[in-house]
Design a binder for these strands. Sequence first.
DNA 1: AATGTCTCCAACCGCCACGTA
DNA 2: TTACGTGGCGGTTGGAGACAT
Length: 362
Amino acid sequence: MGRAPCCDKASVKKGPWSPEEDAKLKAYMEEHGAGGNWIALPHKIGLKRCGKSCRLRWLNYLRPNLKHGGFSEEEDNLICSLYISIGSRWSIIAAQLPGRTDNDIKNYWNTKLKKKLLGRCKDSHARRTSPPTQEESKEPASGTNTTDRFPDGLSASALERMQLHMQLHGPSCSSLAFFNNPALLPKFHPLADRILHTQHADAINNAAQGVLQHFPETYSTATTVDASQRASFPSNPEPATLADTYPGDVDAATSSLTGFSSPSSSTALNVEQYSDAGFNEAPTLQAELHDLLCGKKGSFGQQLLGDDLDFFSEFGSQREGAAWWGDVDGFEEKSSSSSWGSSAPVIQTQAMFQELMMGFNF
DNA sequence: AATGTCTCCAACCGCCACGTA
DNA sequence: TTACGTGGCGGTTGGAGACAT
């Protein structure tokens, strides 16, 4: 049995708000406020609207000091920077833009800013995801053409953020090689950095917990790394390494993971610490990450580095059993420009995935 | 002028987190 | 501890207007 609806769908009015409805809601809100109960509010003022609808109308349209349209270049930059850093957390982004609502920013991003930044991505993606033509479908499964093997289910947000990061930082970033070279770590917006402080501290502790809980089974699910690759793997960890070495000791396991002492969950752990300590000084973390990327997605993966890097685990989960991994194309199309112009070249994600994994010294 | 397509954005939907009884 | 009510959030939809053919 599902959740009871918040209102009687049959008796509430939907669709655009009339000026009269706006006036009623605005007058009441300015005098009394929502009173902590949006659900009851429409009954009080005689509106045949769902409480949620009232709340949305007030927050997105009627609330004082709202700005509509006309985003400035500074706002564009801030939105983009935050989106790359923290993803589609529109409410957090909106909190940094006075007078803007999350809905406004979301719409602006989806309709204008994304296109401005990603340029021709849409066309390319459509080509990759469209059903194969009769000619294409005649290709042997082992063919080298990978353009029709774009992994289903890869989140648009993850792709966009990766592409944006590439376009804004150019090839000097070497795609995702910052996993192996902390100097190339993405530069987070100061706000995002603050937001991520706590998340990373928690994430690292959670990661250690996750390793202790999940490590024994993780390698058994890593299907695409053969024995020689495993042998050349940094520190060549055996299953349950952390659990064996640090039985029940999350802090010690965390230190092993990160290369520096883990803070308590409430202690700030900033991005610079990642850079200073470096992933290349924490081969065990690389191993765990590799394992995660090759074979496992889920809560552990989501927790490992926080949602700001969640797309790595998405890629990893897509890699398992996916034929698209084997071939590399499109390097020549990779952007060498940090321009935000609409004609920016498409970032070829397959090439980036490949380069990401090269960062693990395969 | 008619029709089709695209763009924009307000509004809706469903899920999740949190507080409370 | 659990169930429930509510707020908050992000993804998605649908309609109106703009634009192209």
